Amino acid sequence: MNDKQQLLINCTSLIPVIGTLILIKVANDQLVTMVTAYVLCGELLGVLVSRILKLYHIDVVFVWLGGILLWLWYCFGVQPSYIG
């Protein structure tokens, strides 16, 4: 893999991580912040493991899937329990 491909993979891996950090900042709910922090830790752990194993395309898919599912959960699924 050449340097240009590696840079492209690194940049595409960082976009969902930045989106997850933005969600932590935007969300005003303790549950969302907690779940987002766990997803962010999972994404970063996945990137670390895939870099160690040199499976670069797997981490891109994993991180994007985690970021997209998290935003979908936030936009359509979060409802406080007291709203019934």
Score class of each variant (00 low, 15 high):
29 D>L: 14
65 L>Q: 13
34 M>P: 00
25 K>P: 02
41 C>A: 14
75 C>K: 07
54 K>L: 09
58 I>L: 09
78 V>M: 05
32 V>R: 14
11 C>M: 12
15 I>L: 10
20 T>D: 04
84 G>I: 15
29 D>N: 15
82 Y>A: 11
29 D>M: 15
45 L>E: 05
3 D>M: 09
56 Y>Q: 01
28 N>S: 13
52 I>G: 03
31 L>V: 15
56 Y>C: 04
61 V>Y: 03
35 V>N: 10
43 E>C: 07
42 G>I: 12
60 V>G: 02
70 L>R: 08
16 P>H: 04
49 V>I: 15
51 R>A: 01
79 Q>Y: 08
50 S>M: 10
16 P>A: 10
2 N>A: 11
52 I>Q: 01
84 G>K: 12
16 P>D: 05
53 L>H: 08
60 V>M: 11
78 V>K: 03
54 K>E: 06
38 Y>L: 14
3 D>G: 06
74 Y>M: 06
39 V>R: 02
25 K>G: 02
65 L>P: 02
43 E>H: 11
63 V>R: 01
70 L>D: 10
49 V>G: 03
30 Q>P: 07
57 H>V: 05
1 M>H: 11
58 I>M: 08
12 T>Q: 00
60 V>L: 10
73 W>H: 03
18 I>Q: 00
71 W>P: 02
77 G>Y: 04
82 Y>H: 13
53 L>P: 04
31 L>E: 14
31 L>H: 13
55 L>G: 06
59 D>M: 12
41 C>D: 03
10 N>C: 11
70 L>V: 10
80 P>N: 15
61 V>T: 00
57 H>W: 09
35 V>W: 11
75 C>A: 14
5 Q>V: 13
42 G>H: 07
51 R>P: 00
27 A>E: 05
14 L>N: 08
40 L>N: 00
25 K>A: 10
81 S>K: 05
60 V>Q: 00
44 L>Q: 02
53 L>M: 13
63 V>P: 01
35 V>Y: 10
5 Q>I: 10
4 K>N: 12
30 Q>S: 14
56 Y>N: 04
46 G>Q: 00
32 V>I: 15
3 D>I: 12
31 L>D: 12
13 S>V: 11
50 S>I: 03
39 V>Y: 05
49 V>A: 06
63 V>W: 01
28 N>Y: 09
22 I>N: 03
76 F>H: 11
32 V>A: 15
67 G>S: 06
55 L>P: 00
29 D>H: 15
12 T>M: 06
16 P>G: 08
15 I>C: 01
20 T>W: 05
15 I>W: 04
16 P>M: 05
24 I>S: 02
72 L>N: 08
64 W>T: 05
12 T>L: 09
27 A>D: 05
40 L>R: 02
46 G>V: 00
19 G>I: 09
22 I>L: 04
3 D>S: 14
25 K>M: 10
16 P>F: 03
47 V>I: 15
34 M>Y: 06
74 Y>S: 02
74 Y>L: 05
70 L>T: 09
40 L>E: 03
37 A>L: 11
2 N>T: 12
6 Q>R: 14
53 L>D: 10
69 L>K: 07
15 I>D: 02
